[in-house]
Design a protein around this nucleic acid. Structure first.
Lengths: 240, 240
DNA sequence: TGACCATTATGGTCTGACCATACCGGTCAG
DNA sequence: CTGACCGGTATGGTCAGACCATAATGGTCA
């Protein structure tokens, strides 16, 4: 037996809450009852409940734990929501990518405003690989990530970095199974990279934002198409 | 004695880490040592360490817990960082307000794109109070908050809402002591609100973004001036 | 000097108990 | 019959102590 009993319990309860097994405001079973149901000691159940409260999915109070409204949850629930199905929900993925795009644009603007010439040159060095025609999806994605990471760092905005990191850590593992279905428009990316490079060179804040947001838009469309593509064959298994 | 021993321990350790008492990568004392130092049960220390790991400030592994780099922390550390001094760090506050502004702009754009006419009317109803000349800071702040909340809700972007909520919950309590020093430019806010209302009426995404970002800019400047104002007298205590 | 291994220390888990309090029932006065 | 009151019970919160698997440590030996 794996010693992660509390993880099993927490995952089970998290799943039940997210799929609506327990309604918002409803009372969860007592720790002792859950201990019996999961054949675990109360300490394990307690750790699981702590995890639920940390996720903001439940509020524990003397007298009983209750399911909290999803809008009051922690940002970390996104990862669990993305993991609900074999394929992540495309609307939720789109929301995450929208936010990441906005934060990247913000970071880029801040970087343009704050960065020294040397730092700006370092960022442009991360843009350069994207300015050339590529064909390797993985390498291209890696280059894009490195570019955004460099701008986030140069922005000096810790809040921005923490959010972006958290979202990426939650999103990345759910996008892995989609890799085979992602189609990247290398040419458009290349053109945007060149626009971005020029905008960085001139410290043109508006142009930088425009280029970053256009890139984010590409990513969003690409992700949505990939999810559609992986969903379609599954639907065709039962055509009637 | 209050039964929140683990909170006391967690707060103490969090403070020590954030002020650099323990360097990044350094090993924290063992749970048993900390239990002796804080005159507490090991379970209490353990809960505190769990909290530290949840905050991303420490990584607990068999063999010992180590201080994690701040860039890998959870978004929730922002609240603790803001609480380090009597007056929150103005650069960090500015970063939070920058991100909140970006998210508000994103939410507004999404709302304009998605909302039904009725929903849009509901948002404009929240803008209306800001279009009239006001003098009550608290009421004005409340109206601004309600407007942003309405747009966040209409955006349908859960990720955006969760982040904004988390940041506001962490920032709000630290801004309370500054309230007396905040000077709000009611007239400019009124003009921007009118621009925003017109942009919403025409579903002009770019104009909506511009108005929201201008409002966010006002908020940032206002917060920075308030912090400067509350810091200045403190500095003058020792003029030499 | 270096690799190997036994000792030690550490986090992870489990058991059981006690406490303060919220919840729920019956009881009794009005 | 209705209401407030009060006790029992269940719940979460905490504490204490023990055992286990494993990483860190230091000595030993080739």
């Amino acid at each position: 037996m794996t010693p992660r009993k509390h993880e099993e319990i927490a995952d089970s309860l998290t799943h039940d809450i997210l799929v609506g097994q327990y309604r918002c405001g409803e009372r969860l079973p007592s720790e002792r009852d859950l201990a019996v149901r999961f054949d675990a000691n109360r300490g394990a159940v307690r750790e699981a409940m702590k995890k639920l409260e940390q996720l903001g999915l439940a509020s524990i109070q003397p007298g009983g734990a209750r399911v909290a409204p999803l809008q009051e949850a922690s940002l970390d629930v996104i990862g669990h929501m993305l993991a609900l199905g074999e394929v992540p929900d495309e609307d939720l993925v789109d929301q995450v990518l929208q936010v990441l795009g906005s934060l990247a644009a913000l970071a880029a603007e801040s970087a343009v405003a704050r960065a020294s010439d040397a730092e700006l040159a370092a960022i442009r060095a991360r843009v350069r690989p994207l300015m050339q025609t590529q064909t390797d999806r993985a390498a291209h994605a890696e280059a894009r990530f490195a570019m955004v990471a460099a701008m986030m760092e140069a922005s000096g905005n810790l809040v921005c970095r923490l959010i972006a990191r958290s979202l990426l850590l939650q999103l990345a593992p759910r996008m892995v199974p989609l890799e085979g279905h992602v189609v990247v428009d290398f040419d458009t990316h290349r053109d945007l990279a060149r626009q971005l490079d020029g905008a960085l060179a001139e410290r043109d804040s508006a142009a930088v934002r425009a280029a970053i947001q256009a890139m984010a838009r590409l990513n969003r469309d690409s992700a949505r198409r990939a999810i559609d593509a992986i969903r379609a064959p599954q639907a065709e298994v039962y055509p009637q």
